[in-house]
Design a protein around this nucleic acid. Sequence first.
DNA 1: TTACTGTTTATTGAAGACAATATACAATAG
DNA 2: CTATTGTATATTGTCTTCAATAAACAGTAA
Lengths: 232, 232
Amino acid sequence: METLSVTSVTESVAQNLRIHIIEGELAPGQKLNELELAERLGISRPPLREAFRILENAHLIVSIPRKGCYVTEVSADSCREIYEEREMIECFAVELLQAKGIRELPEVGAALEVTADLPMPTSSDAYEKFDYLKAIADFHIRLVESAGNSRLNHCYHALFPSLARYQSMYTYIPGLMNRSQEIHEKILGLIERGDYDRAKEVLRSHIRGFLTLMEDEIRQTAEPQTESLSEW
Amino acid sequence: METLSVTSVTESVAQNLRIHIIEGELAPGQKLNELELAERLGISRPPLREAFRILENAHLIVSIPRKGCYVTEVSADSCREIYEEREMIECFAVELLQAKGIRELPEVGAALEVTADLPMPTSSDAYEKFDYLKAIADFHIRLVESAGNSRLNHCYHALFPSLARYQSMYTYIPGLMNRSQEIHEKILGLIERGDYDRAKEVLRSHIRGFLTLMEDEIRQTAEPQTESLSEW
DNA sequence: TTACTGTTTATTGAAGACAATATACAATAG
DNA sequence: CTATTGTATATTGTCTTCAATAAACAGTAA
C-alpha cells in the first residue's frame, strides 16, 4: 500500500500560488488581497496568511507590514542574483561530491534519460514549456541532492521557484535547450571519470551562459508582461 | 527624527522563540504546544502559527502535520551541513568580490575594530558568550553583505540562527576566539591587496577548523543537554 | 488654486470558537 | 497475559468575528 500524503490547506494553497506566480498569471507587482484571494480559493484567511509566509521566504512575494503582500517584481538585477546563487549551490555540490569521492550518480543519469526521450516544446507558451523545463531542471535538482547536504537541498528548492519564474517568462531558445542535454551529459561523464574540476567549470559556464541570455532578453523587453487580474 | 520600526506580533514572537532556541532554553526535540506557548507569551494562536512558519524555514523547528512543531534536534551531521553551507556562502561572497573587483570593505573593517576592544567572555555561560559571539559574527555578516547579492545575504541570515545555536551550546574556546580576530584581520588584508584566492583559502580553512572542533565537542558530549521545560 | 487636515472606508492584524484528527488509555477477546 | 479495537481526551487545523491601521477622498483655509 502506498502511504497517502497528508497535505495541509496551507501547503496546497502555497503550491497553488507558487505555480500561478511562476506561470505569470499572478503578475509581478500585483497586490494580493487577502479577502479576495481567500474566497476565490474557497478557504479562509488564516491558512492563506501562513502560505504567504512560505512564499515570502521563497522571495515570490514581499510582505509590507500593515500594507499587504505583493508579487515580487522582476528585474535583470534580481535575475543575476538568482543565477549567482544557483551557480554557487550547484558548483559547491560538485565540490562536495569531490570531497566525498562520489562518482556514481544513478538518479542524475535517470533524469538525463527522461529528458532525452521528451519532445521539444513547439511554442513559447508557458504551459507547454513548463513540463519540459521541469524535466530539464530535474538534472540539476538530482545533482544537488546527490551531494548529501539537506540544507543545500533545501536552499536549492527555495531558489527554484524564482528561477522557474524567469525561465517561464522569458526563455524559449530551442537550440539552447537542445545543447543543455549535451552539456548535462558531458558534466555527468566528467564526474564519473573523477574530473570534478572540469565538471565544475563546464557547469559554471553553462549556468553563466543562460544568465547572459536571460539578461539580454530582459533588457530587450522593457515591459515583460503587463497583463494582470487574469481569470484562473 | 528616527523612524520608529513597526513590528508585527508575528515577527516579535518569531524573534523571541529564535533567541530561546539558540540559547537552549527551548531544548532540542521539545514539543511546542501552541495553546500553552500562546498564553505564556500572552498572544493568540494565529500569529504564533505564522511565527512557526518562519522558524520552520530557518530549520529551528520542524512541523509535522496534525502532530505539531518540535525544536530541531542537534547532531554532528546537522552541524557539518551547517558549516558546509557557511563555507559555501562565505567563499562565494569572496568570489563575487573578486568578480566585481571590490577591495575596500569599510563595514567589515568597522566590525573588526568593534571586536578588538571587546572583553573576552570569562565563562561558558550562554548569556555571556552571546554578545561576544554576535560581535565576532558581524565580521562574517558584513563580508557577505559586501558581495552585493541580496539573496545570498538572505540565505546567510537564514543560516545564522542554526549556526548560533551550535556555537551557543558547545563552543567556548578562548584561544580560538582570540585567533579568530587575527585570522579575520588577515582575510581583510588579503582582500584589500586583491589576493582573493588566498583570502578565500584562509577563510575556508578557518571555517573548517571550527567545524572540526565542534564535531569533536558534539561527539564527546553524547547528551548535549537533557534539561527541558525550563522556566523562562 | 493648492495644500493641509479631518473623516470615511477598505484592508490587514489579532482573537476566540468550532471541527477534525491523532494519541493514549482502557476494555475485551483470543 | 497479550494484542487489538474502541472510546475519550487533548491538540492541531480552520473559520468567523472584532479591532486597529492605512489610504483615499473631500472639505476648508490660505
